[in-house]
Write a protein that binds this DNA or RNA. Structure first.
Length: 334
DNA sequence: GTTATTTGACCCTA
DNA sequence: TAGGGTCAAATAAC
């Protein structure tokens, strides 16, 4: 397969940057809103903080989707690296996969156990932390102990893999105990028409924001930590793993699956026993997502931040998220 | 009964 | 050959 040509890449990047800029604008408005003295009943005028937060979420979510669309275009992967507050985007050739399509052909349809394509995760990544869902429904299909890791890795595929042939998969691995933090690695992109891929799914019995602000702080009430402000983007590794913290309804259940299946993954505060297996309970945890093949994410958890701190911390955030820097990359691509 | 999760087995890649 | 990704039967939850 071929790498996306510069024009394709540019188009996608323009889309992404446009969405990110929109998100930045929303973030700016949110900061201003949060800085205002809050009075009961006053949620900030015409646009509420919740709405702004949702807009920010959508910006990142749609950006990720746009980047994801690159994967199917070839061996190349779009590399997004956020390091020291600077976002970098580039295209990387993954090289031809040696995966045995031939060997797969040799195998019967029923005998495909273990057939897989080992992913190259290290090549690129995005570091974005997010507090919101990715809007897709996932089904867990495996869990495995990974060498040199404390916690098992959980494997998820798109729920619509069979009915719509969606090839998107993700891996969720707990990487930190306190605060609880997960690394989610995405592979492939959704080709399904997942109905969840709209606005963030609200699971709680309150308002959307409440569920969006799924706790990032295991010890704090879920509602308080929804927008884990502290760091939206940080440098996770030298190679620039990108983090994207998000909690979605599907993710919640996904991660919960991990939690349920392993005591090591259990969230002491949010993994409610009262919730059913498929309950949409929030799993209150830092969620580090690595979007790989397309983008990857990683983040450094911020502790003890609640909405009170958000407004002040967000000032720093604005400096860290150099969307304009990203936009500046466009000319180089053409 | 249906759907999701768990888990051991299988087998490919490095 | 070890490690890792996926499959699918068994099991659990609804």
């Amino acid at each position: 397969m071929d790498l996306p040509n510069p024009q394709q890449l540019r188009t996608i990047l323009e889309t992404v940057i446009g969405k990110l800029l929109k998100g930045k604008e929303s973030a700016t408005q949110l900061v201003a809103l949060l800085k205002k003295p809050r009075s009961s009943g006053d949620r900030g005028g015409s646009v509420s903080a919740e709405e702004l937060a949702l807009q920010i979420f959508r910006s990142f979510s749609e950006s990720i989707s746009a980047f994801s669309s690159l994967e199917g275009k070839g061996n190349g992967i779009c590399q997004i690296v956020a390091a020291d507050g600077v976002v970098r985007v580039s295209s990387v050739d993954r090289g031809s996969s040696k995966t045995s399509d031939n060997s797969r052909k040799r195998l019967g349809v029923k005998d495909r156990r273990g057939c897989y394509r080992r992913r190259n995760v290290a090549q690129s990544s995005i570091i974005v932390s997010s507090t919101v869902e990715d809007g897709h429904a996932w089904r867990k299909y495996g869990q495995k102990e990974i060498l040199n890791t404390t916690y098992p890795r959980c494997y998820f595929r798109c729920t619509h893999k069979h009915d719509q042939g969606c090839k998107a998969t993700k891996q969720v691995q707990r990487i930190k105990e306190e605060p609880v933090m997960y690394q989610t690695t995405y592979f492939g992109h959704h080709t399904c028409s997942d109905t969840l891929m709209r606005a963030p799914q609200i699971i709680s019995d309150t308002d959307p924001m409440d569920s969006c602000l799924l706790s990032f702080e295991t010890k704090a009430p879920i509602k308080q930590n929804l927008l884990y402000p502290n760091r939206v983007m940080t440098t996770a590794t030298a190679t620039g793993n990108q983090e994207f913290k998000d909690e979605t309804q599907s993710d919640v259940s996904d991660n919960k699956s991990c939690l349920d299946s392993s005591t090591m993954l259990q969230n002491p505060t949010t993994n409610s026993e009262t919730s059913g297996r498929r309950s949409s309970n929030v799993n209150g945890a830092y969620h580090e997502e690595v979007v790989s093949g397309m983008h990857s994410c990683s983040s450094t958890p911020l502790q003890g931040l609640d909405m009170e701190d958000f407004s002040t911390k967000f000032d720093d955030l604005d400096d860290h998220l150099l969307f304009d820097d990203m936009a500046g990359l466009l000319p180089a691509l053409s």
